[in-house]
Design a protein around this nucleic acid. Structure first.
Length: 782
DNA sequence: TATGACCGGGG
DNA sequence: GTGTACGGTCATA
């Protein structure tokens, strides 16, 4: 019978030595159903040297065949290309996906085999690519209902065997059931350890509001059971979390295991969340989305900051508990209400962030073809790579292997070095939008690159880089498709009332983010399609264009205070609209000044700045990275110094603030928890050869009978005394008197350096804080 | 100067 | 699961 299905996700199992692909779907009536494909087989390619006797290579490959997964077919292929060049290859098919790796290694050792390709594409992705099925698309298929066998047992009502796929099309998606969750853990001895610390609350948030499962004091077995039951009853398609891939799921599964229960929440009977690619957890048949991966892929952000930035939940409207207050608010039953409010703030903001970005995520999935759970953890480079994988299929291009390439140190980038210091009324120009047009104009692509002579090529100024004119490159095709999708939506959006625009705006945001991060892919050295000349050519042309823009900006009376390959800052009193027009007229470039900052602190390094937006929000870039191994107080000092300089403009006030922090420390007015440094014990403790501070602290904790295991995260403070610093590290919870803490260490090594990161730009010196010097005042007299 | 170990955010 | 992120900084040789 013919039916339509909306595709959510794929997975596979090996049943009776045969691979079976599951397509987790929703039918036209909104039922969750599962499609089963039994006729697809794994394969890979061996590239054969032209001078070799192919039949000999084939017979040698045949000899490798093993009964547990025989080599079922070998075909000679001559029309497939590798970086644009035709290659002779053998397509080698087997039965069990895991044997692809085994055969790949053996085949690559055969004489005459130059290379082995496409052996590292996950089986169900291979299926989805070959059949052209993308998640969040609809398929029309000829299917036959089958009864669930033991191994096929799924919780959905119906199971269909695929006989034929007739059509794959885009249409309105069914209503997706979404849910957010977050767990709270009793963390009396620092970062929670699954062997010791119970889960005390699990909060879930859905369209029906919230529910909290609360432990009976210190036993979490029923909390976990109630959560499992809730998920199975609610049957979410999407589960949102925040850092759930690195914390919540692992903690839940491990706690459950300790108590002998399974977190069986997948759509397949008895399936637990399990770790998959890109460090994500997969829940069979459901899309597990870690929003931290979506919004903070390179720079980490707290949920509080993210929700505030996205306008989902302002900081002052939420309940905030510091991590060390959690056990106190649990032990004291009269305070538990506040702990629950804290959890509610978390799950509500996770849910709202997810909901308000659902179409953004759906669009990213539709473009890249990555299932949502994987997409949420994949970097922008990986997203583009999967788009290319699908696109290359259309052109008979091989998917290149992943290769480890060392990033070469380069002086690439800086065009105008940063004029460090404080600036007023600054425009920012994001150059990421100029690169797609350069790639298109010069047809830059791995398959159009010409290394020798070329009579009909786009050639860079210095003649180093040449790209063919006669064919359309892979990249050009991809970018043209993306641009067309963008333009189509831009046309429609004009005709809609504001409230109906939201969905299209989200889709546009997704499409533009892919388009504008394409240049980042080209220079990503570990990319499958990385070609040095493409990266260098692009940035040579880019640099040329940026220099032209720079010239116009300067001629228009603006001062450029920083420019590199990604962005430019400039300031001045003249009319920016006029400048936009000038650039448009003279360079045929439609550039928008993305941001206007009323205040900008520019540091000396590459892409390091803090700025105040028109609506009085602080943007910090490249500065927070400094927080590795810094205590909370040092981070807070940096944040406050930036805030004061930006908002009040008065360096002296920021200096006074830092001094007040130092005085408070010396007077003993501080919390030990604010001075804690955190480190993970990644090895068995005996394996450490050196006395690193966190290892010494861990040994002390163990000696006092505290649980420390591989993977534990140790929080320590430095106490007074003599000798090596590491020997003065103590687990923070073992330091009972504040007077024991070596305050001068924190002042010298954490607070002052943190403050000087920014204040140093204004002539403030270490001595200013140490001896109350007057060099700041002198600086301003100049 | 190169190499390897470690970090984030979650509590 | 045809697997094990990323991009950066710091310590040590």
């Amino acid at each position: 019978m013919l039916e339509d299905f909306f595709v959510l996700d794929f997975s596979y199992d090996v049943v009776d030595n045969i691979p079976v692909i599951f397509i987790w779907s929703i039918d036209r009536r909104g039922n969750r159903v599962t499609l089963v494909e039994k006729n697809f087989r794994p394969y890979f390619y061996a590239v054969v040297d032209d001078r070799e006797d192919v039949s000999r290579v084939i017979s040698e490959i045949k000899k490798l065949s093993k009964p547990s997964s025989p080599i079922t077919n070998i075909e000679i292929e001559t029309d497939r290309r590798y970086f644009g060049n035709p290659l002779k290859s053998l397509k080698i098919e087997t039965v069990v996906p895991a044997y692809v790796r085994i055969y790949r290694d053996e085949v690559s050792k055969i004489k005459g085999v130059k290379n082995v390709l496409e052996a590292d594409i996950r089986f169900y992705m291979r299926y989805s690519i070959d059949k052209g099925i993308k998640p969040f698309y609809w398929i029309k298929a000829d299917v036959e209902e089958i009864q669930p066998k033991e191994i096929f047992k799924v919780k959905s009502e119906k199971l269909y065997l695929i006989k034929d796929i007739l059509e794959i099309y885009e249409a309105e998606e069914p209503r997706l059931k979404t849910m957010a969750f977050s767990i709270e853990v009793y963390n009396k001895y620092g970062f929670p350890n699954t062997r010791r610390d119970p889960i005390i609350v699990i909060g879930v948030y859905t369209e029906n509001g919230y529910k909290q499962f609360i432990s009976s004091d210190y036993d979490d077995i029923n909390v976990i059971r109630e959560f499992i039951k809730f998920v199975n009853d609610f049957e979410p398609d999407i589960i949102f979390g925040y850092n759930s891939n690195s914390f919540d799921w692992r903690y839940l599964v491990e706690r459950a295991e300790l108590r002998g229960i399974k977190v069986a929440i997948g759509r397949k009977v008895n399936s637990e969340p399990s770790q998959g690619v890109y460090g994500h957890y997969s829940v069979t048949g459901r899309l597990n989305v870690d929003l931290a991966g979506v919004f903070c892929s390179s720079r980490s952000k707290s949920l509080i900051d993210l929700a505030d930035n996205l306008g989902v939940m302002p900081k002052n409207k939420r309940e905030i508990l510091e991590w060390y207050e959690v056990p106190r608010y649990w032990d004291d039953k009269s305070k538990r209400e506040i702990l629950l409010k804290h959890n509610l703030s978390n799950i509500k903001s996770i849910y709202d962030i997810g909901q308000s970005n659902l179409h953004y995520l759906i669009q990213l999935v539709k473009v890249t073809g990555l299932p949502l759970d994987q997409l949420s953890m994949a970097s922008s480079g990986h997203r583009i790579e999967w788009l290319l994988v699908r696109e290359s299929k259309k052109y008979n291009e091989f998917i290149p292997n992943r290769e480890e390439r060392r990033t070469e140190a380069s002086d690439e980038g800086i065009i105008v070095p940063p004029v460090s210091g404080l600036h007023n009324n600054v425009y920012m120009l994001d150059f990421s939008t100029i690169y797609p047009s350069i790639i298109l104009k010069y047809n830059i692509s791995p398959d159009t690159l010409v290394r020798g002579d070329c009579s009909d090529c786009w050639t860079s100024l210095n003649g180093n880089y040449k790209f063919r004119k006669d064919i359309k490159g892979l990249y050009q095709n991809v970018l043209l498709n993306l641009s067309a999708e963008i333009e189509r939506r831009e046309e429609i959006i004009k005709t809609l009332d504001p409230e109906k625009r939201r969905r299209l705006e989200e889709e546009l945001r997704a499409l533009r983010s892919i388009l504008n991060s394409f240049y980042d892919y080209i220079r990503w050295t570990n990319a499958r399609w990385y070609v040095k000349e493409c990266a260098e050519g692009l940035f040579e042309w880019g640099r040329e264009l940026i220099l032209q823009i720079l010239k116009i900006v300067k001629e228009s009376g603006f001062q450029v205070i920083y420019a590199d390959t990604d962005l430019m800052f400039f300031k001045g009193e003249n009319d920016p609209k006029k400048l936009e027009e000038d650039i448009a007229n003279r360079l045929s470039l439609n550039l928008k000044f993305n941001k206007f900052y009323t205040k900008l602190i520019l540091l000396e390094g590459k892409k390091q700045y803090a700025a105040l937006t028109k609506d009085n929000k602080v943007d910090m870039v490249g500065i927070e990275d400094y927080r590795n191994n810094w205590c909370d107080l040092a981070k807070e000092v940096l944040q406050n110094v930036v805030d004061q300089v930006l908002r009040s403009d008065k360096i002296n006030e920021a200096v006074r603030y830092v001094k007040s922090v130092i005085y408070s420390l010396r007077r003993g007015e501080f919390k030990i928890e604010d001075l804690v440094t955190w480190n993970i014990i990644d090895k068995d403790i005996e394996e450490y050869k050196f006395d690193l501070p966190h290892i010494v602290a861990a040994r002390k904790a163990m000696k006092s009978g505290h649980l420390v295991t591989r993977g534990s995260k140790i929080g320590y403070v430095i106490v007074k005394g003599s000798g090596k610093l590491s020997n003065r590290a103590e687990p923070y919870f073992m330091v009972k008197e504040k007077s024991k803490v070596d305050i001068e260490y924190y002042i010298d090594k954490q607070i002052i350096p943190s403050a000087l990161k920014v204040l140093g730009l204004f002539g403030v010196k270490e001595n200013t804080f140490k001896f109350g010097g007057t060099d700041v005042l002198n600086f301003f007299k100049k």
